[in-house]
């Protein structure tokens, strides 16, 4: 297990700016043209009051964070469970944060159990959830940029409790 991975370590955040253009691009790429995402006049008349980003778009940002932190260990051995707590809207700046809650050994394999959050610029929770990453000994931290993987993969967690 790489020395950087340990209980309490903070996973470097990912920050994204949500725009209607990005939501429209995601609709085209995924084929999800639910009007709540892409039809501004329809969405304005709903209880949400306007268009919202696809939950899977925001979840892609969560996966980006975990990919940068854990590399192939995440891509081929990750498990994720999230709740979409509030919508992300055009104009929002969302920040995905995460922390390793525990390292667990099962059948001689280490797993990093992580707590995840995505919040908007008003500090409202957009997504909350957990991820578990199988830390296979031969594919730790496969970050494509070796300098970053050695130096910036994880930070010491600040006690936020």
């Amino acid at each position: 297990m790489p020395a950087e991975i340990g209980k309490g370590k903070t996973i470097p955040p990912v920050v994204k700016h949500i725009t209607q253009e990005k939501i429209n691009l995601y609709a085209e790429a995924s084929g999800d043209f639910n009007p709540i995402h892409v039809n501004e006049s329809f969405a304005a008349q709903t209880a949400l009051g306007g268009t919202i980003a696809h939950g899977m778009l925001i979840l892609a940002y969560v996966s980006e964070q975990l990919t940068l932190a854990f590399g192939q260990s995440w891509l081929s051995g990750g498990r994720l469970s999230v709740r979409f707590k509030a919508p992300a809207r055009p104009g929002d700046i969302v920040t995905v944060t995460g922390k390793i809650d525990s390292i667990e050994e099962r059948n001689s394999i280490s797993y990093a159990n992580c707590r995840l959050e995505c919040r908007n610029q008003k500090n409202e929770a957009i997504i909350t959830g957990e991820a578990a990453v199988k830390l296979a000994g031969d594919i730790p931290f496969c970050h494509p940029d070796p300098e970053r993987s050695e130096g910036e993969g994880f930070r010491e967690g600040r006690d936020s409790s």
């Binding site: 709540i36 081929s76 498990r79 979409f84």
Partner: peptide, 18 residues
Amino acid sequence: SLPPGAIHASQELEFFKL
């Protein structure tokens, strides 16, 4: 065919293979 306004509330995923 879902009614307009359907919302994704939660998601679980597990990845096995690249």
